[in-house]
Design a protein around this nucleic acid. Structure first.
Lengths: 239, 239
DNA sequence: AGAAATTTTGACCAGTTGGAAAAATGTTAG
DNA sequence: CTAACATTTTTCCAACTGGTCAAAATTTCT
């Protein structure tokens, strides 16, 4: 018996009519799902894009289907024709997000040298914060709520990946190529410092002020982080 | 004319009856506000505590008065007797939060030596993440939404404080006591790395696993961060 | 073109939400 | 004790929410 989804055993107190698609799928569990039409793919993309916009700001509970529909430029029932329920939209978004999210770390290569590898990992994460801030906020929102909808993926896929990369880091430390520190917290600190520029963007810009809060802030951040992770704050004698 | 609150000039499309307290205050702008009774102070505290619990998880929009009332153990109308509207509760929470939030940075002392000062700043922030995770999440939630309700405080109070401390850091750098880097991003990185342990707590615990995800994780984090900020990741020859 | 399938709309619904009003119940100073 | 005040409960409401449904409009396929 699978350990998850135990909830389905609950007695359905309210008989809750099912959505057409659900009903059809239940009737013919082996019916091949009709391939998506062009319109279906296009509209689903529009909806997901709009949902990203809304969910990333207000979180799951705070976002409404009406809002998403409005941003997507369609009526609520029309939106619900493509996604039978709010949760479904969010689920799709999160599934896509997790893949994007893991990719940069996956690229960290054990055969490379630690500093180029770590440096370009930081760069990639910082670029993601710059180019996909909504995705970053969506993820943060889910985390703040205790990740109820993705905890399993975090506990399995993400954990496995980090375990693997922590070993890589340990390997480098054993070879004396990297200071001996906690590889897990090292990874956390890279996540934290880079995602900060997406999640706390308002604060960063407000504090930097108009003169330094422009696009250049990402380059400044990259330079600073590079220095921090390489040398820390101890002053070094001028060459 | 004050620059904020311009919205009151909007034509009130719906005549929206005002709350009793509001009406009273408007009628006698100089009437001295009756001092709070014991019960009032106690109940307000209970409500704020409950609101912190709920707002920190679901954000402003996602939280409901009913939820807060239930956590506070009272009826919704009863709660509304103490705080005329949802926004008011949130405002009070944020005002109190900001003070708590700025305190640790304020303690950073220009006359001290940079490393002890920075180290203990990191410690204090990490302790806050450990001891007040809900406050941290409340703050993060507000940031994710673009800080609509506290942007002014961020732009003024927080910015001024950071400007001041950035000067302190620059002073240390000029004295050669601290590596020359961007003081603003230095402060950001301290915020990011420490608050991460509150805001992304689920993730941290999931990735560390049961063996290392216990309370000890904060000590591990402190050790790691100390090393990171002091020396970075460059390996140093053994003494 | 015309039938079949897909997409869109408008009307609708039950439950939730923020909030108001008033009546009922304490509490306290004189 | 009792009048004045503070607190709590009950009832209520309009707007919003997630979601359904049948019919109409449009697109696709033959």
């Amino acid at each position: 018996m699978p350990l998850n989804k135990v909830k389905s055993a609950e007695v359905a107190a309210t008989p809750k009519r099912q959505h057409k698609a659900d009903a059809k799928a239940a009737a013919h569990p082996h019916a091949k799902p009709r391939p998506l039409t062009r319109i279906q793919r296009e509209k689903q993309d529009i909806i997901l894009e709009a949902a990203l916009e809304v969910f990333s700001v207000h979180g799951f509970r705070g976002a409404t289907i009406d809002q998403i529909a409005e941003v997507a430029g369609m009526s609520k029932p029309n939106l619900l024709y493509y996604f039978p329920r709010k949760e479904e939209i969010h689920r799709r978004l999160m599934a896509a997000l997790l893949e994007t999210w893991l990719a940069p770390l996956q690229e960290m290569n054990a055969d490379g040298d630690p500093f180029p590898e770590i440096r370009s990992y930081i760069r990639r994460k910082l670029e993601m914060a710059r180019d996909y801030p909504r995705e970053s906020r969506l993820f943060a929102n889910e985390m703040l709520q205790g990740a109820p909808r993705i905890i399993e993926m975090i506990e399995v896929d993400l954990k496995n990946l980090v375990d693997e990369k922590a070993k890589v880091l340990l390997g480098w430390m054993d070879q004396g190529k990297l200071a001996r520190t906690d590889p897990y917290h090292l990874i956390f600190s890279i996540w934290a410092t880079t995602q900060h520029y997406a999640d706390f963007d308002v604060q960063v810009r407000a504090v930097l002020g108009p003169s330094r809060g422009g696009e250049g802030r990402f380059e400044d951040a990259a330079r600073y982080l590079e220095h921090l992770f390489l040398y820390g704050l101890t002053p070094r004698p001028r060459p």
